[in-house]
Design a protein around this nucleic acid. Structure first.
Length: 484
DNA sequence: TTTCTGATTGTTGTA
DNA sequence: TACAACAATCAGAAA
């Protein structure tokens, strides 16, 4: 079974080689072609790739790029290796390609200034959006590739299909699943690469069997976790890689992306990380709203149960019908109490000795559904207490106001407070207002939204100037709560 | 510090 | 038709 594994394409000006996870020095010293390396395994023959700087009309648009590269990289002899997946062919943004040439020489035979540094040496800073915009034009990549380079890359990346299989094997086919190896061997391999910092040379060598755990069913309303910087990079890069190597499997692409990620400059990584940070903030907001909605729903569920079992007076009693409905794919429009609470908070609340609910509720019945816990504002951080002391101005009131619960005769302390809050003059109407506001800030922005597109400032997301209500004007003061 | 989870895309198989 | 599984890799969260 053929695998490209950590064999990286190496281009020495005449031929493209593949190395088996060797350091570049190793590769330089051995300078073995992929063919010779693998002759014991497969009868592959990698046709040398015509250098992209060879006369090729379709590559003319790249000539300047390349010539400038060579001219800039004085330390790079004409025949020295250039990074795997020649950027000329990859048609990747300069940032990516350049960074394959930079850093710790991971993909280089000699340290070089990055193209980006050279290109942007006049003080222009890295613009990740530009990069993304370039990358997102994945459709143009194949067309920009010369037929020659494209076919060459395909012949390399996709040769497994032609050679090893009579018919192409799907990349994700289960037949590709490596045979499990002994755990001892795995551990040794793992420890080796952890200790040495080397990349895993091959999935054939002691790949851990993937956990066969079933993926948890995700609540479609649950906000999606922000993707990591690497995932963003992968998303941006894979299209270009696939464009150049249509037959590259996911594993191939992953390795290429990983190598590129390794070679990516810190600045560029930071740019991606900044993106993820921003996304994370948005996620936290959405998560807060989502958790609030869960609490709300669980209240309703409990109320439903209560209605069917009226002999349990100590349980939270809430009407089955809420005053609002949660739209699909959107979180609760308001960030409720639970939004500030981690499960640990909720658990601690459950265990609080002064919690009448915890006393009255069967702990066992509580455990399976943490979100079913009553709003635990009384054992949480001081700011929340402060908010509770100012119910008229606290955003925390929102989930309580909307419930407009006919209070049961027996109330816990929290319920008592909730009851008092429920009598607030701000009711459903206020909530609806807040709902639309919050959705416009957390969810996809409506074109009609008054918020500035792309403005993620909290104050803009909760423009109290439109509200005029005290609780809305307090939103900005509460923002720290959402971000904690 | 280690372990686990989930994210990336595209294909295949199954319900 | 929709969804899960799978591939390699990494980041981030959790223990």
């Amino acid at each position: 079974m053929f695998r490209i594994l950590d064999k990286y394409l190496r281009f020495d000006g005449e031929n493209v080689y593949m190395s088996m996870n060797e350091s570049n020095q190793d590769f330089l010293s051995t300078n073995q072609t992929y063919n010779s390396q693998n002759e014991s395994n497969e009868d592959y023959e990698i046709p040398p790739i015509t250098p992209p700087n060879m006369p090729d009309p379709s590559l003319l648009h790249l000539v300047d790029h390349e010539s400038s590269y060579h001219s800039l990289c004085h330390s790079l002899p004409p025949n020295s290796l250039i990074p795997a997946y020649s950027y000329q062919n990859m048609d990747l943004p300069a940032i990516m390609v350049s960074n394959m040439l930079s850093q710790d020489g991971h993909l280089l035979s000699s340290p070089l200034p990055t193209i980006q540094e050279l290109v942007h040496s006049e003080g222009s800073s890295y613009d990740p959006s530009h990069q993304v915009s370039l990358l997102n034009r994945s459709g143009m990549l194949p067309s920009h590739m010369s037929p020659l380079t494209q076919s060459q890359l395909i012949s390399q990346m996709g040769m497994r299909n032609a050679v090893t299989h009579g018919s192409p094997s799907p990349p994700g086919s289960k037949s590709a699943t490596p045979s499990p190896s002994s755990s001892t061997q795995e551990e040794e391999t793992e420890s080796h690469y952890k200790a040495t910092g080397e990349k895993r040379p091959s999935t054939e060598l002691g790949k851990k069997p993937k956990n066969q755990k079933k993926k948890k069913k995700k609540d479609p309303n649950e906000p999606q976790k922000p993707v990591s910087a690497y995932a963003l990079f992968f998303r941006d890069t894979q299209a270009a890689i696939k464009g150049q190597n249509p037959n590259a499997t996911f594993g191939d692409v992953s390795k290429i992306v990983a190598s590129m990620w390794d070679s990516l400059g810190e600045e560029q990584k930071q740019a991606y990380k900044r993106k993820t940070e921003a996304a994370k903030k948005e996620y936290l907001k959405a998560l807060a709203a989502y958790r609030a909605s869960l609490v709300s729903k669980s209240y309703n569920d409990q109320a439903e149960t209560k209605n069917s079992q009226p002999n349990q007076p100590s349980k939270m009693i809430l009407p089955k019908q809420t005053m609002y409905s949660l739209p699909p794919q959107s979180s609760s429009p308001y960030p409720g109490l639970a939004s500030f609470l981690s499960p640990a908070d909720l658990q601690s609340y459950r265990g609080h000795p002064h919690s009448s609910l915890s006393q009255s509720l069967n702990a066992k019945s509580m455990l399976p559904n943490i979100s079913a816990s009553p709003p635990p504002p009384f054992q949480i951080s001081p700011p929340l207490h402060q908010h509770l002391r100012h119910p008229s101005s606290s955003l925390l009131n929102q989930p309580l106001n909307i419930q407009q619960v006919p209070q049961p005769p027996i109330l816990s302390s929290s319920m008592a407070l909730q009851s008092s809050m429920s009598s607030s003059p701000t009711g459903q109407q206020d909530f609806s207002h807040l709902s639309s506001e919050f959705q416009s800030s957390v969810g996809p922005r409506s074109p009609n939204s008054s918020n500035q597109p792309g403005n993620t400032d909290w104050d803009n997301e909760f423009p109290n100037r439109e509200c005029g209500m005290n609780h809305c004007s307090s939103l900005s003061r509460d923002k720290s709560l959402y971000l904690t």
